[in-house]
Design a protein around this nucleic acid. Structure first.
Lengths: 334, 334
DNA sequence: TTGTAAGCGTTATCAT
DNA sequence: ATGATAACGCTTACAA
């Protein structure tokens, strides 16, 4: 950390700190001559702008927080890249915290952000977050954008995808291919996103005159192992099932493993649709047909919205629901 | 942002700011009675500690930076989780930047960190980083830890893995299984890590009386697609090759795809070893035998080292080389 | 044990 | 066009 201050520059040149400061920020009318002298001195003395002092004086901040529950999940890593990009483009520093689904660590991070007087934050809350957490968010005057996991009954901006529609598209696709015995695999039962996706799945079955079968709906964690286990269960107990809508691509990838182990050919003997469109899905042996929600775009959009809020936009809270698209690959046949 | 200050608390209680401040930091001898009154007032008035002001006054900071080139790479996401954890445990805020291999964005982030007076940083530099970047790092007095990608001729702490040894282990494994025509796939030719891994590969071949064949050494990008392409080339032009050491797991996963497309059974017709041990490798159809470098541990260790440096440890720069282990799965047969 | 007051480095207001 | 100076909120000698 350089110790050269605005005052040092001023003293060095025999001028006032006001002049130096104004030169730095291109404010006020500074003669071209002085300007040059100041810039030269800054360079010579190796001056480094002290953002901390400026933040204190301005009661402002150039820092925003990003709270995730799992940065190692490719979907969130992708989203982070989108947000990071957007923040850098606007000279904001991005604080990252990984709650690992711990409400405690999440709360700690929030307090930290508050103490650091962050300009705003983007949050994908841990699964067991008490509702009062969101209520307290609303009371704080820090701009906040919720992402991916919707939270009911709070007036906070949200950016996510249309879970209902996405799963309708996935289910419809399978129905059109002639499948009638379609399972739904994945997600935690407490998840709101899951309930919406299930809604899309069921609505389409009903639309086609098919009664949903609770036995074919299996919840599991967001990883391949769980997906494999779930698919094993389906194959064992419900051999009549010929297709499945998976809650996430990672689950679908796990399910593919189970199918192969049982000697089934994905796309011929069994059809799978995923959700998320993570990079792996495009590259799997038989590409996963999936509902694409453009993770990077969610990050970018959340950043954009956050910037507006920081800039002072105080419209009522809004939800930006990105419309998903169906990316057809080989996992349902070709 | 709450506007309640230490002065407000003091005024409210009819005491001095010094007393309040000391209570907050458990410094000086404050009577239990005053302590309780202060804590009560803090709660009642909704006081929020202003870290910015404290940082300015103390000429300190609770912020560290993490500069990566690709957060969406599972290896780095994993490492980030390890570092993030370590930082949170010590109440440091982690700034994230994703250079996407751009030296410009990298430089911008560095400047930003400097302006924000960060306490330190962890860096995995972009590939086309000019050497003067590292020289300027040394001149700045900000504690810095380089990770994963080694940089020659700079006295900066480094945490990474033993690339040479790791590739020796991989190669030895294949040799022991009887392979004599072993290819090396992946990495950019400018990469120092790659040159070290190649060294490990070649040294083992030579140790076994086998002359390395330049034709079997193919460089490619750190993604599956490139891995697939590279393996296709091998299969077409060098059918005598029966095994390959891959520069990264992602490359190995891509290579597996190519093999399957050609009707080869991984583990029987062709043996593959990867490097990194990313989660996907454990879950691929035939698990990838790989050199495990414990990404999370690199992050954790880098954090630990950084904390020491921030605490004032000024020993000469050191390299922490984590010893890799070979994780044997099915990609070389069982 | 507690109070007073001078900074940390920047910015903005008001003079000149 | 530039200068003097008082904040921003916290910490810490030093004084009481």
């Amino acid at each position: 950390m350089s110790n050269v201050t605005v005052a040092d520059i001023a003293r060095h040149l025999g001028i006032s700190t006001a002049t130096v400061s104004m030169t730095l920020r291109n404010k006020g009318r500074i003669s071209e001559q002085t300007r040059q002298r100041v810039l030269k001195a800054i360079d010579e003395l190796g001056y480094v702008y002290n953002q901390t002092a400026a933040n204190l004086r301005n009661r402002s901040s150039n820092q925003v927080g990003l709270l995730l529950h799992d940065i190692t999940n490719p979907f969130y890593a992708e989203m982070t890249a989108g947000l990071s990009r957007e923040m850098e483009n606007h000279d904001l520093m991005l604080f990252l915290a990984n709650s690992e689904e711990s409400a405690d660590r999440q709360q700690q991070f929030m307090d930290s952000l508050q103490r650091n007087n962050a300009a705003g934050m983007v949050i994908c809350a841990a699964q067991p977050t008490p509702h009062r957490f969101f209520e307290s968010l609303q009371r704080r005057c820090m701009p906040t954008i919720l992402v991916v996991r919707p939270v009911p009954d709070v007036a906070i901006d949200f950016v996510g995808t249309d879970n209902f529609l996405g799963c309708q598209m996935a289910t419809e696709h399978l129905l059109r291919l002639g499948h009638r015995h379609i399972a739904f695999i994945g997600g935690q039962t407490v998840s709101i996103s899951r309930s919406r996706r299930l809604g899309g799945y069921m609505s389409k079955l009903i639309e086609h005159g098919i009664a949903p079968n609770q036995e074919w709906i299996i919840s599991c964690g967001a990883n391949r192992n769980d997906g494999t286990q779930a698919m094993m269960t389906i194959l064992e107990k419900h051999p009549e099932v010929t297709a499945a809508v998976c809650y996430q691509d990672v689950v679908a990838l796990g399910a593919m493993l189970a199918l192969r182990k049982q000697g089934k050919v994905v796309g011929c003997d069994f059809a799978l649709v995923g959700f998320d469109d993570i990079p792996e899905s495009a590259l799997a042996e038989s590409g996963v047909t999936t509902v694409s929600v453009a993770a990077r775009e969610i990050g970018r959009k959340a950043g954009e919205l956050l910037l507006e809020r920081i800039a002072g936009n105080d419209e009522p809270a809004k939800s930006v629901i990105l419309v998903p698209t169906l990316v057809i690959r080989q996992s349902c046949g070709s």
